[in-house]
């Protein structure tokens, strides 16, 4: 169970990204966060694993207050929360396997991992995760030689190395073409259904959100605009979220 209570984030330049956001996510739910660019989606996701420190409010996960954790406690929390990114955030010059193994860093001895030593178990695991996302044969190529969709799958494999209970996906398909977008979303759906991983995913397109979400949360200017069933978003709600001039774009 993830509980967000009165979460507020004000950046140092005075921009208010989140205003008093509260909601709860039960375990195993597939939640999609929608909203315009700059509505606070990324900030919300990053506050949950404290890549960004919130200004105010609390985030409680499985009874632990994430916002109050110190460095060491935060590390232990973070390693149970996987994250994938719009720009994939792979180290482009490193091999795919190295990128995937990086997901295991929270569990390895800091000294050994500095000299690039991982246990046989971790290596087997990395290959297994790559197998799962269907690019095992790319394990020893450089990350920047892969296509966008493949890179995002490496990102998913890296997050899976953490044995996550919660997966944060920050616009995972915004840099991909429609067909690849669906294949990446399918992997997320699989993780949700098969492994029971709770997923919090931000998306641009309502059509994609509707296809995969159990529940949709919409942000507008840092405020919670909508929280409910995907089917409940009608024309009026759509205009509320995206503005009067918005026209629906369907993604096949």
């Amino acid at each position: 169970m993830l509980k967000i209570e009165h979460l507020t984030k004000v950046y140092e330049n005075g921009v208010v990204a989140l205003r008093d956001i509260s909601f709860e996510v039960p375990d195993g739910q597939f939640v999609v966060v929608i909203g315009l660019s700059g509505s606070g989606k990324s900030t919300l996701l990053r506050c949950i694993n404290r890549l960004i420190d919130p200004t105010d409010g609390r985030i409680i996960w499985n009874g632990i207050d994430i916002t109050a954790a110190n460095d060491e406690e935060l590390r232990l929390i973070r390693r149970r929360i996987g994250m994938i990114f719009q720009q994939f955030n792979l180290v482009k010059r490193s091999k795919v396997i190295t990128n995937v193994l990086a997901g295991r860093l929270g569990y390895t001895n800091p000294m050994w991992s500095l000299v690039n030593r991982f246990s046989t178990h971790d290596r087997q695991m990395a290959l297994a995760k790559l197998e799962r996302v269907g690019i095992r044969e790319k394990a020893f190529t450089r990350a920047d030689e892969l296509s966008g969709g493949q890179q995002q799958r490496v990102g998913i494999a890296r997050a899976l190395m953490q044995d996550p209970e919660l997966m944060l996906a920050d616009e995972p398909v915004a840099s991909l073409d429609p067909a690849t977008s669906h294949s990446v979303m399918k992997y997320l759906e699989l993780l949700n259904k098969e492994d029971g991983i709770t997923i919090l995913c931000s998306l641009h397109f309502l059509s994609l959100a509707r296809a995969y979400a159990d529940r949709i949360i919409a942000l507008k200017d840092g405020l919670l605009e909508f929280d409910g069933d995907p089917a409940d978003i009608d024309e009026q709600r759509f205009k509320d979220i995206y503005g009067e001039d918005a026209v629906r774009v369907e993604i096949a």
Binding site: L76, M83, V91, A102, L105
Partner: peptide
């Protein structure tokens, strides 16, 4: 900054973050 963010999100220590997110770049 992307890889740094990604490595940090896995629960890596600061030294690991430098070794895996910064040094290769």
């Amino acid at each position: 900054p992307g890889p740094i963010e990604a490595v940090q999100a896995t629960g890596a220590t600061r030294l690991q973050m430098i070794a895996y997110g910064v040094v290769p770049q």
